[in-house]
């Protein structure tokens, strides 16, 4: 007992300066963490604060006029920007368009990716390797490379067959399905790889066809990955700008490009834009949080394995 206490006291005496240094180090460390969080959060705080400012406050703000400097706490907080989010820019229509296109993409892309992912994981078909490589490499090419001929193709189909694809939901869903397919099918394939093949063999012995195995065994077991892939496709379609800025019009404009409508050459409606920005990001952040683990693992392994 007493020897222990003596030893303890000795260590305490010996390590006092060391401990002080450790505390300083610890404090510095938490300061660094605080700095990181500040850098991350400032734009978000500025967005939220802007969304509660009155138009008057935003328009009369001036970094040089004392009393009118832009600041984080709104001078007269208001909900006006949220209530009137649909008044000058039809943001709710864009929201509806985005919901339809993103949900459609999610369903179609996940279905196609599941079929292809199952084939890649379970069948050793001739040409599999080149196929996977070619799918993967499309992701590396500039989007603009596809956009021009794709637009010309849409115009040509409309001209010759009378089928309008530009500015329609099916046209956009088809486009975005193709965008999310590479990541979606490879991610599903690697997930299906982890499902023991013995289950397939067993089902086959019991008289299951290949499709039966897919729907009775693989599908129920891959649900976590399917959810992740679905949400990935949804977010991709929700966020896409390049193709949406050319291929969508008054019928299908999505939130990602519609958000830019708040700033015109005549007027800059920053308050409305920030309120809309908050609304646009909420579904994405919420959905991403749900399947954060799977999507990140997929992306990270893509980057680390290369």
């Amino acid at each position: 007992m007493s020897t222990q206490a003596v030893a303890k006291a000795q260590t305490a005496r010996r390590t006092k300066p060391v401990r002080a240094r450790r505390i300083v180090k610890e404090v510095l460390f938490y300061l660094v963490v605080a700095l990181i969080l500040t850098v991350v959060m400032v734009p978000f705080l500025w967005m939220v604060s802007g969304s509660f400012k009155t138009t008057l406050e935003l328009q009369s703000a001036d970094v040089l006029r004392p009393g009118h400097e832009p600041r984080f706490i709104p001078r007269e907080p208001t909900l006006e920007n949220y209530i009137r989010v649909n008044s000058t820019v039809p943001m709710l229509d864009y929201f509806k368009n985005s919901l339809i296109i993103s949900t459609g993409t999610m369903i179609v892309a996940t279905t196609l990716a599941l079929l292809a992912g199952y084939a890649i994981s379970r069948f050793d078909f001739p040409g599999k390797r080149p196929y996977v490589v070619s799918v993967f490499s499309t992701q590396m090419l500039p989007g603009i490379l596809f956009l021009i001929p794709y637009f010309v193709l849409f115009t040509w189909i409309n001209q010759n067959f009378g089928i309008r694809l530009r500015d329609t939901y099916p046209g956009m869903i088809f486009t975005y399905t193709s965008f999310s397919l590479p990541f979606a099918m490879l991610m599903l394939a690697s997930y299906i790889d982890t499902i023991p093949r013995e289950l397939d063999e067993q089902a086959r012995i019991d008289g299951c066809s290949s499709l039966g195995i897919l729907f009775r065994i693989i599908l129920p077991l891959s649900m976590p990955s399917i959810a992740a892939v679905g949400i990935y496709s949804f977010i991709m379609a929700w966020n896409e700008i390049l193709f949406a800025s050319v291929l969508t019009g008054s019928n299908t404009k999505t939130v990602a490009v519609g958000l830019l409508d708040f700033i015109t050459t005549q007027e800059a409606r920053w308050g409305g834009m920030m309120a809309a920005a908050v609304i646009v990001s909420l579904p994405v952040v919420f959905l991403f949080t749900l399947v954060q683990r799977q999507i990140i693992d997929g992306l990270v392994s893509g980057a680390t394995k290369g």
């Binding site: 978000f44 990602a256 490009v257 958000l259 920005a277 990001s281």
Partner: peptide
């Protein structure tokens, strides 16, 4: 955060 939101902010 979506690109359009982040870069608008």
């Amino acid at each position: 955060t979506p690109d359009s939101v982040a870069y608008s902010v």
